[in-house]
Design a binder for these strands. Sequence first.
DNA 1: CGTATGCTCAAACGATCGTTTGATTCCTCG
DNA 2: CGAGGAATCAAACGATCGTTTGAGCATACG
Lengths: 207, 207
Amino acid sequence: MPSSSAPLPTKERILGAAEALFARHGFEGASLRQLTTAAGVNLAAVNYHFGSKDRLIEEVFRRRLDQLNGRRMAALQKIAGDPDATVEDVLAAFIAPALELSHDGSGSLFMRVLARAFAEHDDTLRKFLSENYGHVMRQFTAEFARLLPHLSKEELYWRVDLVTGALTHAMSGFGMIQRKSDVPEHQHREQTAAHLIRFAAAGLKSP
Amino acid sequence: MPSSSAPLPTKERILGAAEALFARHGFEGASLRQLTTAAGVNLAAVNYHFGSKDRLIEEVFRRRLDQLNGRRMAALQKIAGDPDATVEDVLAAFIAPALELSHDGSGSLFMRVLARAFAEHDDTLRKFLSENYGHVMRQFTAEFARLLPHLSKEELYWRVDLVTGALTHAMSGFGMIQRKSDVPEHQHREQTAAHLIRFAAAGLKSP
DNA sequence: CGTATGCTCAAACGATCGTTTGATTCCTCG
DNA sequence: CGAGGAATCAAACGATCGTTTGAGCATACG
């Protein structure tokens, strides 16, 4: 086991290349041959280390979502139940970790992978996401419910759902808004978050 | 040429099956063999009538988007420049045609196909969409600009982009909100539109 | 030293992909 | 009726897919 040699271990290199290629070409569109070539490893390495392509896909998700949702929960715990907390604070707790993820290199690619996972209506993947990270959404929804007591449960579900849509859309760089060449990447991300929080807060707080 | 026989002509049956399978399995995930089997036509029929799979994909888009954006433009013309028009009216002009599309059978599937097209960052497809239907988005944005004069051009772009995200998310049935079995399809769609318009209007009008 | 053990490698497996071919059927029109 | 173009069909094309195999290499431990 090459525990701590100079270059990245094979598993990590595969995960990195997989994330980038899944973001660009989708799960079916990216082949193991492209993937292993990009990672500079042998074709058989994927099946050796992960068992199959599907398990590799799961691992790509698990690696990022564990840290993403971990940070989200930590940020939420700081303000949960706080009588001074605002809707904007809760939104920031949800969005800021995604921002931080985008800062380190390939992190921004993962948001695109996540957006693809939403677009694919694959039941296996949705079940995986729901089982492993559904409690995060429930916790955030509960906090929104506390801050927006005038909304019925159903009304709140609708609005949180729409916020999720706008967030996924914006963070994965779908839309018209492209970063201008004279705006640094991190500044663009922060602008995105600021606009997103303002927009979402207005939609949530609407009477 | 079977101009008007009892069953649907081959071309239409292929387009229908393609729309359904692209929605479920994506463009790469749906094979021509699944597709032609579902349509009840011969495997070679796709290449005979459309030339290639890529051209079939384009035709799936063109058929629906021509009518969708035609109705959007017609609805917008009715209120463009009207001093009594509201942000909600413009949003309705954008959303209602998508609703109507969803009413006739396979129409709702197309919104999922459209959502996939957004998720795929395929440049060819994005260019096709931009060249053929970009003027619709520009027209709507211009109308929003008239009704929201306090917003800078950049601020407006951001908000319209976020509205698009929420719309795509909601209309393609991504999210948590699933239609309950005791709610008719059309009623669910209208609820979706009502929630969407209220949410988006609040986000747009936010100071 | 010998031998396990973890890992990499080139090569091949069968399956499935989009596309093409050439024969056959269907329908129309002279 | 018979010619001719449009449409359909079964079959095959080469390419590429995910996965498996078995030999080869490295490092660690008795």
